[in-house]
Design a protein around this nucleic acid. Sequence first.
DNA 1: ATGCCAGTTGTAAACGTTCACATTTGTCAA
DNA 2: TTGACAAATGTGAACGTTTACAACTGGCAT
Lengths: 336, 336
Amino acid sequence: MSVTIKDVAKEADLSVATVSRVLNHSANVSEEAVGKVNIAIAKLGYSPNFLGRNLRKRETNVILVIMPSSEHTFYMKIVAGIQKYAQQQGYDIICASSNSTGEIEVRQMNMLFNRTVDGVILLGTSYQAETLNKLSQHYDIALCCEGVEGANVLTVVVDDELAAYDAVKALIGLGHKKIGFIGANDTAASSRRRRKGYLRAIAEAGLEIRADYMSLGTFEYEHGAAGLEELMTLADPPTAIFCVSDLLAISAIHKADEMGITVGKELSVMGFDNITMCEMMLPTVSTVEQPCSVLGETVVKKLISNFGKPGEEKENGIFIVPHKIIMRDSVRPLDK
Amino acid sequence: MSVTIKDVAKEADLSVATVSRVLNHSANVSEEAVGKVNIAIAKLGYSPNFLGRNLRKRETNVILVIMPSSEHTFYMKIVAGIQKYAQQQGYDIICASSNSTGEIEVRQMNMLFNRTVDGVILLGTSYQAETLNKLSQHYDIALCCEGVEGANVLTVVVDDELAAYDAVKALIGLGHKKIGFIGANDTAASSRRRRKGYLRAIAEAGLEIRADYMSLGTFEYEHGAAGLEELMTLADPPTAIFCVSDLLAISAIHKADEMGITVGKELSVMGFDNITMCEMMLPTVSTVEQPCSVLGETVVKKLISNFGKPGEEKENGIFIVPHKIIMRDSVRPLDK
DNA sequence: ATGCCAGTTGTAAACGTTCACATTTGTCAA
DNA sequence: TTGACAAATGTGAACGTTTACAACTGGCAT
């Protein structure tokens, strides 16, 4: 059917070994042979079969990216960063979304065991630290965006605690004294750490820490609206709200509008991630930028450099990339 | 390193052929053998190597999806639909974004020639009909969302002309008589057909067709704002605008806000696609829904069923899936 | 002449599967 | 006892590569 290296060899009147050498740019092959092979390749329209090659080389040049289903637009930006660098290095990306229960995640991980892929990047995971540690002994694994406490696995993240601290401090700097928090519950490591940063900023400014100013739920869109309603129906509602994701912030802004509260005037709302939608919203939403491209590039770069190294030489640390506060229309100074 | 079928055979005290038979659930294998093999597999933690299997079977169970870079959130919904069905059938998806020039597209198509993937789904392409026809003789290719005129290739799309016609007719039904159009130029087949539908609805209602009410540019976000400004600074501006994509509509809504025009009151704006963002915007945006999930499922289903069939038996037609008009806050009846 | 080296090429064995075919075993009828 | 047949299993050749190793060339010093 398809034209193989054998056909090229026959056409060029050389052995398959020589053709292979030309293909792989190995040394010790004559100019003449290179010429003949290239002509034959062009004539036959040959393109090497990856299955044969990879089977022999015991590698596939494919990296699997698994993203949690919840919110695609943010993860896609990271995947884009991964892809850009990976492509350059001759790797391809398979991306899959797991559902929240983690069953699909398990199914996908089979590709690692299969050797269908050389490594995996998890943009959030339902695996425990212990499991990850075990896996990483035999396979190349990396976490991105969402670390797992106690996992000794290559991890690339922003400093969630510090980022949240900076964001809340910025709100305080604008005069806000009553600042609410909408986030997921503490089982999500990133949300927990962001809440920690929120608390530190509040405490440091000498403001009152109020349990009723914190709405802990999930990362789901709906929780943003629910949280906002909860906070804004208090007797003494906040004047600014920090949300652990842009999606929650947008949902909250919607609910506020519905309640007749104008965000960017009567109420300030801040998000986290800097998804594309932030600039498209009315009002545009203030947020903490995660440098998606950098996150993606960094994690894939380090993962690739781990390939083939014996376990003890692999880089397994946590790498922090810088965040950035971005102020837009959804946040305004408090006018007395 | 990894445990192979040979190890399992040794452990189970059987030949590799029998193990393979158990793995593939073939007939003519004793209960006893099945048991022994399963125990051995569990004990060794074996998982069959896909490279070996696929090399032998001359198939990979992987489908490549190529999407134009421009607008991810819409395409991701389609990919999700594809993935859902493909997964069920034991296929995996590789997704790649091409840039607008098409050079990456060419690079990615190599995976077809390589036999790295069994087939390709193009969510928009820069290939000419002729090229596609040639390719489809040797490989399994499908188009989704964006057809190519004259290409005799499996295509799954909504009826763009009719969908646009329906949308504009809905605006007319609400009393609008001055309706603008923001779209890409006619080289994009879908935009061209949508403009045709727009024109038909206008003509059929006996309204005036005005060249200055049509802003033809690109699918890029920026063109929405530019188009809106163009239309709304006319001496006699439209009261409603139909955009060929939600992104253009959102961009237009932004610009309107900036110009002090309230969309959903003074001006009605309608989009196309029904991306998630439509419901998140303020105002929520009216649109024509493309049934992403159905589009994805349909195209991958038909593609898979083409696999292995001789050329003349392959399904190569155009399949239309139904669209739906969704009215939200960005559109209001014209008050006299 | 002989040996040795470097440069180039070919041969054949892997890589981990599947599958056509051959072989073994057991059952039952003649 | 033999033969025929079915069921279960094994053997070995593919699939398309890469690569260790062997083999063949000249050229050049001995």
